[in-house]
Design a protein around this nucleic acid. Structure first.
Lengths: 215, 215
DNA sequence: GTCTATAGCCAGATAGAC
DNA sequence: GTCTATCTGGCTATAGAC
């Protein structure tokens, strides 16, 4: 009886320890991969970042490739469902645009490297997209499409292709972060000034989009 | 006398040969670096692409780093002055926006990897920006700024921060290409369908921007 | 599960013949 | 200037002790 109980405790400790190491590795890997990309990242750096040994990385994830996949899916899963939720919410179109841009900019300010990372890696290997679509990781914009078409009928907004509108919304929210170094060069702003621009943006982009489409 | 003339011919032949190999290497390097990035590119692949030997790369450019720099500056110089010319041209604001988006989309269709490459590498090493600004490779948006402010005074357009407008224009023209794989996933389009979207875009983006700002 | 040590490979760079 | 052969170092991955 007491042996059983002891085993339970031991297993629990083991499990806790496992998990803590495993997620520690994943978090370290996220930091390194997201900053340096698949080809730029080094297993040694990930090990250092996790405060453990290189061999452990292989023990838990077998190869760099597999560790990368875990990181990529994790990062992607932070992007897509968020989008899904907002796009398919049951709120008026203009409010939806405001909600989305604002919440998305908040998200990117908190995780600045994620969109760049995802897009960079998708460009490196466009076949990823096929898998992600097949595994239904991509949100569906059908509800949004219906809503846009209804607004066009209503004459609430000017006629516009839903895909183009969707691309425009994403472009205006994501690009300022992906292109930050470039845009800081063009606008001659330093980090702080650029950050202020982004702050201002959070309240203003939605209005830009709404002005563009409202009738 | 005839020796001098002979030397001239020999030098010219040498020089021609040099240049042809040297630019051959640079072009091959552009193709490889722009597709794979600094960390993903391999010197061997560049040599193969140029149809010569790895040793030649070092003979002409000494190191991967220096070859990369040559490629990067070359690629960047294709982006920036184009922008400069349009931004500082002496045409009305709305026409300028139409000219820019249209000519820029044409350019990117022709050289699809360049913006992604430049932005990716600037993110990898943001210090590049400092050098580029210092060496005056970045176009100045002052003329554009004056023009926008004048239009706001005129009440031709709604009040808007020039930097935000500039960012919006770039975002709407560049992002659809950088984010192409991602956007193809969201919109469930294949390459051909997406290309058609971009074609349609070329004539429509400008109007979207103009609608957003016109009074 | 975690470590050290090392195998094995591959990439950038150079030496040296022609 | 151009080639082949080779050095050197760094990186992924594994073997094996504890």
């Amino acid at each position: 009886m007491s042996t059983k109980w002891l085993n339970y405790i031991v297993n629990k400790m083991k499990k806790t320890k496992d998990t803590s190491t495993e997620t520690g590795i994943l978090n370290a890997a996220k930091r390194v991969f997201i900053k340096k990309g698949m080809t730029g990242a080094r297993m040694q750096e990930i090990a250092d970042e996790a405060g453990i040994n290189k061999a452990m990385l292989h023990y838990y994830y077998r190869s760099k490739e597999l560790l990368f996949e875990a990181v990529f899916k994790n990062a992607f899963s932070m992007l897509a469902p968020k989008l899904n939720k907002v796009m398919n919410a049951d709120v008026p179109l203009f409010k939806k645009i405001e909600d989305f841009t604002s919440s998305y900019i908040s998200f990117v300010v908190k995780h600045p490297y994620i969109p760049t990372f995802v897009i960079q890696e998708l460009n490196r290997n466009p076949d990823f997209v096929k898998n992600l679509v097949a595994e239904e990781h991509f949100p569906n914009i059908e509800v949004f499409k219906k809503q846009v078409e209804k607004c066009i009928e209503n004459k609430t907004i000017k006629p516009i292709n839903t895909e183009q509108l969707f691309i425009n919304i994403l472009a205006l929210t994501i690009f300022p972060f992906i292109g930050a170094p470039l845009l800081m060069g063009f606008t001659r702003t330093n980090k702080k000034q650029y950050k202020d621009l982004m702050k201002q943006r959070k309240t203003e982009v939605a209005q830009f989009i709404i002005n563009a489409i409202k009738v």
